[in-house]
Every structure is written in structure tokens, then in C-alpha cells.
Amino acid sequence: MLTRLTDKPKKTLSKSERTIRKEKTVSFVVLFIVTILWMLPLIYMVGTSFKSDYDLQTNPSGLFPSAGQWTLAHYKSFLSADSDAKIFYWLGNSLWSTLLHVGLTVLLDLLTAYVLVFLNFKGKEKFVKLLYLWMAVPGVIGTAPMFAIFAAIRNGLEISSDAGSYAYIFFWIVMPGVSGIFNMLLMRNFFLSIPRDIVDSARSDGASNFKIFTKIIVPLARSTIMLIVLFTFTGSWNSLNWPQLIFSGEAQKWWTVTIGLTKFTDSQAAAAATGVAMATSVFAMLPIIIVFLFTQSKMIDGLASTGIKA
């Protein structure tokens, strides 16, 4: 009798179990194929960077160099001292400017969202409305005039030193976009969802705004901060349009990685140096991957310690 009772549910389970298993197999097969295809370009890139020049000409369809044709020559060519190793400058420029951009964005968003949510002052709501409206305006409208402003202020300041010029140009790389509305509103929405009683009780305990901000709000906001960090990091690292405009005519050592690598697609001569192009690309990818590996572990710790539930 008992077995009979347990028989029935067993049957229904196994039916959906079978469907699930079928689906899992289908999904496994599809995803496996997709993953192989996805990895292809990257494998090609890495493999080609080790191919000797001779192999590049004679074995173009191989993902990996043929036997005996492995070489580090391409890496050496741009890493060695006499090629003035521009890649390091590019990576350096990209890294510090992106990190600064991200840091400023997060700080500004935290501060401004806090002010908009937890402080009261006249015109607060109107300002938020204005921001929502302005979000619809695409940034492309401002590119040409911003370029004109950039040049005009440079004229006014009459910067003569190299360091000054560098600082000025990177000011214009880092700052635009720090006040991105989307990110700030994201933060604001998160703050709006924090239960007011936490803040109110802290206030009634006599905590200053600053204390509330640092001790309560910021730790809670970890996940949104992560989100904004991730949104802005790749946006800034990858930006092509605006840096291209303001770097034209400047020393190559000042470029960012994304602009520097366009040399390989722009000029046919550089593009013909396949091995070097691939090696440089692989090398340029490494820091991003490393940065993400590092921040990932910190994020898991951070999230676990604040106890934010799913």
C-alpha cells in the first residue's frame, strides 16, 4: 500500500524529471557548441601571437603555430627597450584615468544621492525632475561644442609645459561623464528603498549626517556601488569617440589603450604585421582580466559581510 502511495508522486516527478533531463541535455549540447565558437576568436588571437612570420604566411588557417614555429618575437618586439614600449604607457594611461573616473563617479553619486534622498531643501524635487528630463538628451549633441570649449580654455590657459598639457587633456578624459544621470538615479533609487527608520533612529541618536552617510548608507550600498563601478569601468576603458578627437596630434605616449590599438586597424602597414598586432592585443587584454579577477573576490566578501539578501 505504502509503495503504491509513493508510486504516484514518483511517476509525476519522473515525467518532469525526464523533461528536465532532456532540456539539460539539449542545453548542454547547444551551450557547448556555442562556447567553443565563442572561444574561437580568442584562441586564434593567442595562438597567432606566437606564430613565427613564416608560419603566418604559410599556415594562416591554423589556430596554433605549427611544430617548431612558436616564437616570442612578436611580444619581444613591443616589450623590448628599443621599441619604446608604448603599450605600457597606453595601459598606464587607460588604467589610471579609468580608475579615477570610476572613483569620482561613485563618490559623486553617493554624495548626491544621499543629499537628494536624506536631506531636505527647497527645489529638490524639481531638480530630480529636471534630471529625468535631461536623461533623454543624447550626449552626441555636446561633442562638437565640448571640443571647442576644450580648445578655447586651452588657449586661455596658455599651458606651456608637457606635464600641464597632459594634466589638461586627461582632465577632459576623466571628468565628462562623472555626472552621468543614469548612475546617479540608480543610486538614488537604492537609497529610496532603504527603510527610513534606520536613518531616523540614527538621527535621533544624535548621529551627524556624515556619520549616517559613512557608517550606514555606504555599507548598505555596496551592491549598487559595484553595479556603477562595472557600468562605468568598461564604458570609460572602451571609449573611442571623444579620446580620438582630443588625442589627435598629441604624443603617442599619451594615448589610451583603445586608441593606441586602433593604429593596427587604421594603417594597412601596421595591420600587415599580424603577429605584432595579435601580441599587443593579448597583452592589452591581460590587465582587464586581472583587474576583474581581483575585484571579484573583494565583491563576494563585501556582499557577504553586509548581509544583503537576494
Binding site: 586651452r154 588657449n155 596658455e158 599651458i159
Partner: peptide
């Protein structure tokens, strides 16, 4: 480049 430099005196 040169036009920009001369007109911005930089």
C-alpha cells in the same frame, strides 16, 4: 595639430 597649437598658443 599645428593650426590648433598656434591658435591656442599652446
Amino acid at each position: 595639430t599645428v593650426a590648433q597649437r598656434i591658435s591656442t598658443k599652446n
